[in-house]
Simulated assay, not measured.
Amino acid sequence: MSVEIVTERGDITEAEVDAVVNAANSTLLGGGGVDGAIHRRGGPDILAECKRLRADTYPDGLPTGQAVATTAGNLPARWVIHTVGPVYATSEDRSDQLASAYHESLRVADELGARTVAFPAISAGVYGWPVPDAARIAVETVRGARTGVSRVRFVLFSDDVLAAFAAAVG
């Protein structure tokens, strides 16, 4: 079954989907950008679950390219899937880690039974990944995934990022 992929400009914290993907940092304790917005809007239940995950499962933090789910708290989604994208580097090709963040997020979505998932542009903000390349990797990974997710929404915060993702979708 193929995944329907849509791109839209918007606020991912308002996405009415089964699962919202958080471009988290490895601490899982909130931060800036999408991560901070999800924690602020979702409320304290998300942070409480993240603290439990850090204490029990990921004492050294969530590794880059991996994903884990928590409640969505006050968000309209049912779950938040936290994933850590790589920081862009010209000295090392980390494309596989970025693809893994999308792939692992879809794997977790399948475990949860999520059929609709909203993604941000992972690593394309403060982590410095060039937006057209980030979009290409994201779309290729989602298209190639064997998943029960039926619809992926790339919910993007700016016109330039939306244009890059729309071009990658074709």
Rank of each mutant, 00 (worst) to 15 (best):
Q97G: 06
A67P: 12
V117C: 08
R153H: 13
V131T: 15
E8S: 15
D11L: 05
A99K: 14
D18V: 11
A89W: 10
P120H: 13
D133I: 13
A24L: 02
T90G: 14
A72K: 04
A55L: 13
I122T: 03
T70F: 06
D18M: 11
T13D: 11
R78S: 12
T83R: 00
R153K: 10
V108F: 11
V149A: 11
G85W: 04
T83G: 05
G32P: 07
A89H: 14
E16K: 15
S95G: 11
V80N: 05
D96S: 15
D11R: 10
T27W: 05
R143P: 01
F154G: 02
K51T: 14
G10K: 09
V161Y: 01
R41F: 09
A15R: 00
I81G: 02
G42H: 11
V142K: 00
T7P: 00
L98Q: 02
V17T: 07
A23F: 01
D45R: 14
I5K: 04
V20Q: 00
G32A: 10
A89V: 06
R107I: 09
A55S: 15
V161P: 01
I5T: 03
T13K: 05
P86Q: 11
A101M: 03
A77R: 03
V3P: 13
L28Q: 04
A167T: 10
H103T: 14
V80M: 08
G128L: 09
A23S: 09
G32L: 10
A89S: 15
P59Q: 04
R41T: 14
S95F: 01
W79A: 05
E104V: 05
P44I: 10
P132V: 05
I81E: 08
V68A: 10
S123H: 09
T70I: 06
P132T: 08
R143K: 10
R52D: 09
R94I: 07
R40V: 06
D56H: 01
F165S: 04
L106G: 07
V149T: 13
T27E: 10
V155M: 08
Y58Q: 07
G36H: 13
V3T: 15
G30M: 02
P132W: 04
V126S: 12
T116L: 03
T90W: 14
P59N: 05
R78L: 08
T70N: 06
A138P: 05
V68P: 04
A135E: 04
A168I: 00
I38E: 00
P120I: 12
Y88A: 08
A37S: 12
G144K: 12
V108W: 09
V149G: 08
S100Y: 03
I12P: 06
I38G: 05
G73F: 08
E140I: 08
A48Y: 09
V117N: 05
R41Q: 13
T57K: 15
A55C: 06
T116N: 07
R151Q: 15
A167N: 02
V139M: 09
V80R: 02
